[in-house]
Nucleic acid binder design. Structure first.
Lengths: 129, 129
DNA sequence: CTGTATCCGACCAGATACTG
DNA sequence: CAGTATCTGGTCGGATACAG
């Protein structure tokens, strides 16, 4: 018996590229803050702590290109640009929430496991002398 | 109203670090091929197309450190090492499947959106001359 | 305010060679 | 078979300066 559920992931490049996008450092966070509604560029930057202007621009462009985020420019001075999730973008919220829920639930357990592993490593290194 | 669901993601570093791990290039694929059961190192490498020995080792070590994968060494010559998901590791399969299902379902739409966006870009660049 | 352009350091990942 | 060690090119991302 093979792994039918995972075949697309392993063999099929297109779906893997989608996962690559989700995997980057800021995409999930940006989609997250856009979950509630429209936001201006500066509002997103403020909400996603630590993101640089360059990275936020790149992330939003990629999301727009993939049709997950809609960009609206208001012809004003100074400029006003607002971003919001499209229907497709919103459809990603469910799966993403499943992941973050898992992370929240298992965070402490994983952190403990890391501690134990690192302790064991330290002991082994000492024993090597 | 704030974004209560996403606050942990944006502000809480530990849970973000968990997502960072999932976001790397090979973790999801390795967890995927281990979904069915125990596998040897070489079997995993064969199943996950394109992964180098170095990256597979690093990925498996990280998963072991986090308690998502169990590593069993058989004291033989030549060595035999088997990997399998722990209970925690298996608990990640559900959320992961939600994501891959989403990717499969929306793949073509996203690809179309990319094509349209790139076309529009090309037109704009031509119009600039 | 919302970008774009450029430079540069840090990290990632592949290739290769070697070991128990 | 299952790693470790090292080198190196490429990419990511931050800082800065500047533009519309």
């Amino acid at each position: 018996m093979t792994q039918p559920v995972w075949d697309p992931l392993v063999r099929d490049c297109p779906s893997r590229r989608l996962l690559d996008r989700i995997g980057d450092r800021w995409t999930v966070l940006v989609v997250g803050v856009l979950a509630d509604g429209r936001l201006r560029f500066s509002e997103i930057q403020h909400a996603v702590d630590g993101v640089s202007q360059k990275m936020l621009t790149q992330t939003l462009r990629a999301l727009e290109r993939d049709g997950l985020v809609a960009r609206t420019v208001f012809p004003q001075v100074p400029p006003r640009v607002e971003y919001e999730l499209t229907d497709v973008g919103r459809s990603l919220l469910g799966p993403l929430r499943a992941l973050t829920d898992w992370a929240t639930e298992h965070m402490s357990g994983v952190l403990d496991a890391r501690g134990s592993y690192d302790e064991a490593q330290a002991r082994d290194e000492l024993a090597a002398h």
